[in-house]
């Protein structure tokens, strides 16, 4: 489904701030595969996602999604195939518009945006149905503005918007990191539910090693712009957080003191 061939990305090339964010990274995902990504700060996790989604153009290499070469496509065109949820709950929704209006924009993804009505009656019924899946009673608040929602509710809504219409690829960039633990767990459960029900090909970055092993079918670890570990199958089933941390420390030479990386 997704084929990344030797992509590299360097920021501020030639300046004192030059930062090699990705170094010849290759990664292949089968259809329906759910990959979790871990790694320290500055490992290149977010850059990888941003290169796939087209926020940053890559310096070299190619990205093929569902048989289409998207290496040079603009961000908005790739977004017709890719659903995204960001870490910041403010980035996923239009705050001054209603829940229904936000969903309508997501629902229209990849379809022509003509002068037809933004929300029809059947649309609204469908949105209520979909919102009910979140279990947050948002279906009762469909005409309320999104700015009235909490961060967790917004993030659940963004997740719904990102998965509506079944994107070819779902990219989750620490989408629960800024939520409080209870709602973060809820959003993670919803993520698993949507991904498995729709068989979505998914990449999820997380700071939480436990979640990284618990969710999905494959885990990769990044360090200094490269993938240093790729776990799946039995090897992954037998992996524990402690061994993962040890492995990370031995491979990277960095002591993990950051609690957030372990459990959050």
């Amino acid at each position: 489904m997704l084929k990344i061939n030797m992509i590299s990305k360097t920021f501020d090339r030639g300046s004192v701030n030059e930062k090699k964010a990705l170094h010849q990274v290759s990664l292949s995902l089968d259809e329906g595969e759910f990959v979790t990504v871990i790694g320290g700060n500055g490992a290149g996790k977010s850059t990888l996602l941003n290169c796939i989604s087209g926020v940053h153009p890559v310096d070299e290499g190619s990205i093929i999604l569902d048989g289409t070469d998207i290496t040079f496509s603009p961000e908005y065109k790739r977004s017709r195939l890719i659903g995204r949820v960001f870490q910041n709950p403010l980035l996923g929704t239009a705050f001054d518009m209603t829940i229904a209006e936000n969903l309508a924009i997501a629902w229209a993804r990849g379809k022509p945006h003509g002068l037809s009505p933004g929300i029809t009656r059947p649309d609204k019924a469908l949105f209520r149905e979909q919102l009910a899946l979140l279990g947050l009673d948002l279906e009762e608040r469909i005409n309320q503005k999104v700015k009235l929602l909490s961060g967790g509710q917004r993030q659940a809504l963004t997740l719904l918007m990102a998965t509506m219409g079944r994107p070819k690829l779902l990219l989750l960039d620490e989408h629960t990191a800024s939520l409080d633990p209870a709602i973060a767990k809820k959003v993670l459960h919803l993520t698993r539910k949507f991904v498995s029900e729709e068989k979505l090909t998914t990449i999820m970055i997380t700071h939480n090693m436990k979640a990284a092993l618990e969710y999905g079918s494959r885990t990769i670890m990044m360090h200094e712009g490269q993938i240093i570990l790729d776990l799946s199958g039995e090897e992954r089933a037998e992996m524990t957080v402690e061994r993962l941390v040890k492995y990370f420390e031995s491979r990277s030479g960095v002591q993990l003191e950051n609690d957030r990386l372990l459990l959050s």
Partner: peptide
């Protein structure tokens, strides 16, 4: 968000 939902 608009770009992430496929609109220029």
């Amino acid at each position: 968000m608009v770009r992430a939902l496929g609109v220029s």
